[in-house]
Nucleic acid binder design. Structure first.
Lengths: 218, 218
DNA sequence: CACAGGGATTGATCTAGATCAATGCGCCTG
DNA sequence: CAGGCGCATTGATCTAGATCAATCCCTGTG
């Protein structure tokens, strides 16, 4: 149970043991689907390794990526009867899955766990509001800079290299997250690289001038 | 206590009485500020009459409206130490305010209330994801249509006229909600009116062809 | 090692929506 | 009732980013 720490720090040892007994470890190959928007929500997930793309589709195929789940992240908070978005693996992913019924029962029985989940949900909501600001009012360059800074912080919080930011998702994924096209994302990357603001490396990016980037994101 | 029903249907009579004793009824004139982004979060609010504009500002003045609170809506869910956005009255507003300390204590003591609030928060999160799709991937006309249909549904749920949709906010507010300029909003309104899709009336809009609108929003 | 296929980049051109600029239209207020 | 102020509409023009169209560059594979 690698990274349940975040949600479960409030649980006692026996409660944790109970939770662990409920968890089904699951493995997903690159590109495999964890769950699909609109389908009945049978399970909730806690990502333990890898990165998951969360997205919504319009009937004509337009896609909006609503987030990227990193190790430790919890999927299924905003779950009612059906999943509100789809999720699939970017590279290899491992996750703990819990049946929805067991999850609901546990939450009902453990108010302090519920409180923790509520804190998570309100934090997600704050992030969603920031993403609205980004999508509605920022330029392409600002969008990309905010994205890179955000990813750096999230990886840093997980103890991963904070000089080089891993970007396992495709340019198309980034474009669909930022409300841009793949071409605009690519051009903006190269412009930032020419500026010496970033250095593009295989599998990610190195931030050469975080101060300037933070100033642009202000 | 006009519309606490939504949050408080789960409370017993004496719990409700306790809650009521904690509430400070507050009145706000048109344009008055309920709270400001970044300031310490002293209170939470439940809107009882009127409409509240919720928005974030960038240092250079760009604004993103993250939502409009209608009667019955709860403000302060996504509250950590500081408010994540600003809120001010569109027209006259009345609200119940609760001190944060009292609110926190009550929530800690009443798990079923917490559960209800968590459901609210996850619903808000789902709406936020839909707004991301709208901001990132929809055209100006689709944005406006989705906005009008959404407002109609919300007013309908409050028992207000569902043929004519009240729009107490300014065109600028709508533009800042949809990630557009005021001119584009205005032009799109007139185009829809020429289409006979809507009829612009003082203080709002009448939807003349909801089927066509729903099809466009699909 | 050729070569195929899935990203990514780069260039040329187009356009939805932004920006700039009047004008209109209530609705107060002196 | 004249003037002014705060929205809203309308028109002309501009541009950031989309779209269309080649390459390019890995990386895996026969």
């Amino acid at each position: 149970m690698v990274r349940m720490v975040s949600v479960c720090a409030v649980l006692s040892d026996d409660e944790l043991a109970l939770l662990e007994s409920m968890a089904h470890p699951a493995h997903f190959a690159s590109g495999e689907t964890l769950f699909t928007q609109g389908r009945e929500a049978h399970s909730v997930y806690n990502v333990t390794a890898g990165v998951v793309r969360l997205y919504k589709l319009l009937s004509d195929g337009r896609r909006q990526v609503v987030g990227f789940a990193l190790p430790g992240d919890f999927l299924g908070l905003a779950m009612r009867d059906a999943f509100g978005f789809s999720a699939d693996a970017i590279g290899e992913v491992t996750a703990c899955s819990f049946s929805r019924a067991a999850y609901t029962a546990l939450v009902d029985a453990k108010p302090h766990l519920l409180k923790r989940l509520h804190e998570f949900a309100t934090h997600e909501l704050t992030l969603a509001h920031e993403q609205m600001m980004l999508l509605g009012r920022r330029s392409a360059e600002e969008k990309l800079i905010c994205f890179l800074l955000g990813m750096q912080q999230r990886w840093a919080r997980l103890g991963k290299s904070s000089v080089t930011v891993p970007l396992p998702m495709t340019r198309q994924d980034i474009a669909d997250f930022l409300g841009l096209t793949i071409e605009t994302v690519s051009r903006t990357f190269t412009r930032l690289a020419k500026d010496k603001t970033i250095l593009i490396v295989p599998g990610g990016v190195r931030l050469m001038n975080p101060e300037r980037m933070s100033a642009a994101a202000a």
